[in-house]
Design a protein around this nucleic acid. Structure first.
Length: 541
RNA sequence: UGCCUUGUUGUGUAAUGGUAGCACAGCAGAUUCUGGUUCUGUUUGUCUGGGUUCGAAUCCUAGCAAGGCAACCA
């Protein structure tokens, strides 16, 4: 049980909020969701589910300059794909009128004032954390004057940046957020939902808590950097005398070998370092989806990393473990040869084709079996043969035996080479008595390798992804480098390999395990003419 | 150098005054027609110093370290 669950269970025990739990996930629609958001989504929706409560989706859309419907749509898609459904869909912008009414109320009660200072003057007046700030010369305007000015701000009489509405919290708090914080700024910018209805927009601090309050949120969960905002959150709820949700902060997710800043992810997309927000190397939810991660694996990951208040950097190997753990259960097995070399079974009849049975998923007998054709000429993985094998190598080498999966035990005899010494073909003989499933098939061999019939295999493009950055902390700029400097030049390698003939775009399963290689899924760019696979994650080595 | 928060194996996370546990990673072995899976075993830890207590990761105290905060961003 994490510390938030402890708080909630105590609240339920004390019948706080009538023992109800109502959370919310409050993204700003200014970018795509990433794995860090997934942690927050799983937390908020998970808590609601665990305690028979509700979880809303609320877009924190108070800054029209950065926000767009494109992001609203992608956020909704990603949350649903992760397997969650919100109780209510809201937008902070739906509350603009209520927020405005409350602002006038605060003015009338002498708790807010219009300030004509420039941005620089306000910043200077705020002072520094170690010393109190100074009061604005406009701080003591009359209620009437403030009301008149604020109404004219709304009416559009003033230019951007010429006036703001500030709360009167005092100028000497050691918490900088409590030094007469700005509530409204003038922004003659169209909003993606309210159009040009407004030219003043509330700040986060004057919108978030109130939105929570309006929706009857009981536990307002956010990340650590909002800790210093909590006194303000509380101040507004108390000043307005409205339902007061409890803000609780937890540590955001950090993953090594990647970055999590929306701004920087946006830069990768805009500067075309990646194919887009859904590039399989991106830590975005849509990127992970395209990469072949299952929603279950991401939920498991979010559960496994836990919830606490200390800063953390999770090892990507945990994410990969979660992917393998789930994929092992659900992925359809198939044989694929990524880096082919020809294997010729010299003593196998020239024009014979045998139909062999292959298991679709050993973890799930219900997945059944399929037929794979076996012939004299096969593709095998170049790495499965070595001329000079050490003690640790127990696959194919001259004079040694291996089993061809679902087929026969073969013994390597010799190899053909071109003038440069590169192996062009490997020759072997097979033992007909060792056919899989036959009475004498139980002879032990050191290894089993996968293969494909040259005459039947189909070509496919296979995209092998590695981590996007070659530094475990690409965002650490202490040496003067930027995350762009740490991009891994080998993060995408495109190979043209061979797949089983029965695997087509039309009948493709959502997830495959290429036996002995890794987990793969069909990419959205695949066509019936050219099927394209993405590597999700390799098998454990 | 003001205020807030946080320090538990390599990485995360439990233990709420009573045997420092779990997961990942690592290592070793068993099984295996995937060097996968599964199973077994195993290395490594309470930031430091004092104090309270029969007993401290936990309480007190003094340090130290890390992170956050001085946007008309969220």
């Amino acid at each position: 049980m994490n510390f938030i669950e402890e708080i909630i269970e105590k609240d339920i025990e004390n019948r706080k909020n009538d023992a109800k739990v109502h959370t919310r996930f409050p993204p700003e629609p200014n970018g795509y969701l990433h794995i860090g958001h997934a942690k927050s989504i799983c937390l908020n929706f998970g808590l609601a589910k665990k305690y028979n409560g509700l979880c809303n989706l609320r877009f924190d859309d108070t800054n029209p300059v950065k926000e767009d419907v494109e992001y609203v749509d992608s956020i909704k898609e990603d949350i649903q794909w992760l397997g969650f459904q919100w109780a209510e869909e809201h937008y902070a912008s739906d509350y603009f009128e209520q927020l405005y009414i409350w602002a006038e109320d605060l003015i009338q009660r002498g708790l807010a004032y219009v300030d004509d200072q420039t941005q620089e003057e306000i910043s200077a007046g705020r002072g520094v954390p170690t010393k109190p700030g100074t009061e604005s010369p406009y701080r003591n305007r009359t209620v009437e004057e403030n009301l008149d000015l604020f109404r004219r701000m709304r009416a559009g009489e003033f230019a951007d940046g010429t006036k703001v509405l500030r709360a009167k919290t005092g100028m000497s708090s050691p918490n900088m957020h409590m030094r007469d914080p700005i509530m409204y700024r003038i922004l003659h910018t169209a909003h993606h939902r309210t159009g040009d209805q407004w030219c003043i927009y509330p700040m986060y601090d004057y919108a978030h808590g109130q939105s929570d309050s309006i929706e009857g949120i009981t536990h307002s969960i956010c990340t650590l950097e909002f800790e210093v905002h909590r006194p303000l959150y509380d101040w507004f709820c108390e000043a307005l005398q409205i339902h007061h949700p409890q803000q609780i902060e937890f540590a955001r997710l950090n993953l090594n070998y990647t970055i999590m800043s929306k701004r920087k992810l946006m830069q990768l997309v805009q500067e075309k370092h990646v194919m887009g927000w859904d590039d399989p190397r991106m830590p975005t939810i849509c990127g992970l989806r395209r990469r072949g991660y299952t929603p279950q694996s991401i939920r498991n990951f979010a559960e496994t990393v836990g919830i606490a208040k200390r800063d953390n950097i999770i090892d990507v190997s945990l994410l990969e473990f979660c992917a393998r753990e789930d994929l092992n259960k659900v992925a359809t097995r198939t044989m694929a040869v990524l880096d082919p070399v020809k294997l010729i079974i010299d003593n196998y009849p020239d024009h014979q084709t045998e139909e062999l049975n292959a298991v679709n998923n050993p973890e799930n007998p219900e997945a059944g079996t399929r037929i794979v054709p076996f012939t004299k000429e096969l593709w095998i993985e170049r790495a499965d043969f070595r001329e000079e094998a050490d003690k640790k190598f127990f696959r194919l080498t001259i004079g040694k035996e291996v089993r061809l999966k679902y087929a026969y035990i073969i013994c390597c005899t010799h190899v053909d080479k071109d003038e440069n010494g590169n192996i062009t073909a490997i020759h072997a003989t097979y033992d007909p008595a060792t056919k899989s499933g036959s009475a004498e098939s139980n002879r032990k061999v050191k290894a089993t390798i996968h293969w494909l019939s040259v005459h039947h295999a189909k070509e496919a493009e296979i995209r092998l992804f590695d981590r996007l950055f070659d530094s475990s902390a690409p965002d650490d700029n202490e040496d003067g480098t930027s995350f762009i400097d740490h991009l891994n030049p080998n993060s995408l390698i495109v190979q043209h390999g061979w797949i089983e003939e029965n695997l087509t775009l039309e009948n493709a399963e959502p997830h495959y395990q290429f036996e002995r290689i890794g987990y793969f899924c069909v990419d959205k760019e695949a066509t019936p003419q050219k099927i394209v696979f993405n590597k999700t994650v390799s098998l454990k080595q």
